[in-house]
Design a protein around this nucleic acid. Structure first.
Ligand SMILES: [Mn+2]
Ligand SMILES: [Mn+2]
Ligand SMILES: [Zn+2]
Ligand SMILES: [Zn+2]
Lengths: 145, 145
DNA sequence: TATATTATTGCAACTTAGTTGCATTTGGAT
DNA sequence: ATCCAAATGCAACTAAGTTGCAATAATATA
């Protein structure tokens, strides 16, 4: 699946008319393989020695945002999470669930909510839904304690 | 209304068994009068010379969180917003709208969404809905431009 | 009202996430 | 192979939030 990932990464970069650099391929492949929102630090950790400079990662993610390859999924502990922008409509992405015990984040792609109806005069461009609670693993743990 | 505000602030502190200090009264009154989410910096600015130390404000807000007088409404530009926890149910608050042009935040208290249905095994404790777009003022501006 | 007890505060120093400026390197068009 | 704008790395910086600790103030009790 890895070379498939690389192929997909190249395709995305090409489609967005972004230069195919080592850093961009690395970051994009990481996001493709993750399939869920990652922070800058998580991306860095996954790339290990292969990771570009911290600033470069930020700039690469910014590039991806500009061309809608990724989007900022949500914020926890003051760090943005980024994920592939492939499973969302123009106005909203699926809800994201974060387990308050193990800190893992899950994409609830089947639980998209209707748009909130806004008062007259407001134009809503984007709706974001965040959930917090316990994941199956941590619920299990609770029961055992 | 100001002395009414102070009265309400005292009542809330008393009910939560928190000592009635100058700093707490000041911060709480500010939040009561604002009626919308404020960042640490916005609270500081409103209090001006009367503002307690930066660290003290953070600690006061933490105290308020612990006893559910306030809640963290959302994050924008890496800064938490706090507001009175008086217009929300246990599991979710109303949606919050932030204008991407003028940066103001509005409470959509009449636009509460149903809870997202989560996959088997997950326990959802809290749902948060964020909206982004243009407020009436800035829509107006767009039209004029 | 004075005293004691404990919570609260201010200050300085620190951490973490993200940004800026600038000189060097590199992708890809020719 | 050459060229040049785009991309990168590095150092220094900012903004938000945290920690430790000594000084101070709110309340309970005498
Ligand atoms: Mn997702
Ligand atoms: Mn609100
Ligand atoms: Zn968990
Ligand atoms: Zn506006």
């Amino acid at each position: 699946m890895v070379s498939n990932t690389r192929q997909e990464a190249c395709r995305l970069l090409g489609g967005a008319k972004l230069r195919r650099t080592a850093g961009r391929l690395a970051v994009l492949s990481t996001l493709i393989e993750a399939g869920r929102p990652l922070t800058h630090e998580q991306i860095r950790a996954r790339l290990a020695e292969a990771a570009p400079d911290k600033v470069t990662i930020y700039r690469i993610l910014e590039n991806f945002l500009e061309v809608d390859i990724v989007h900022k999924a949500f914020l926890r502990k003051r760090a943005w999470h980024f994920e592939l922008a492939d499973r969302c409509t123009a106005r909203q992405c699926h809800p994201h669930f974060t387990c308050t015990s193990c800190n893992r984040t899950y994409c609830f792609t089947d639980a998209v909510l209707p748009m909130a109806k806004s008062p007259k005069g407001f134009t809503v461009h984007h709706q974001r839904v965040q959930l917090e609670g316990l994941c199956p693993d941590c619920n299990e743990g609770e029961r055992k304690n």
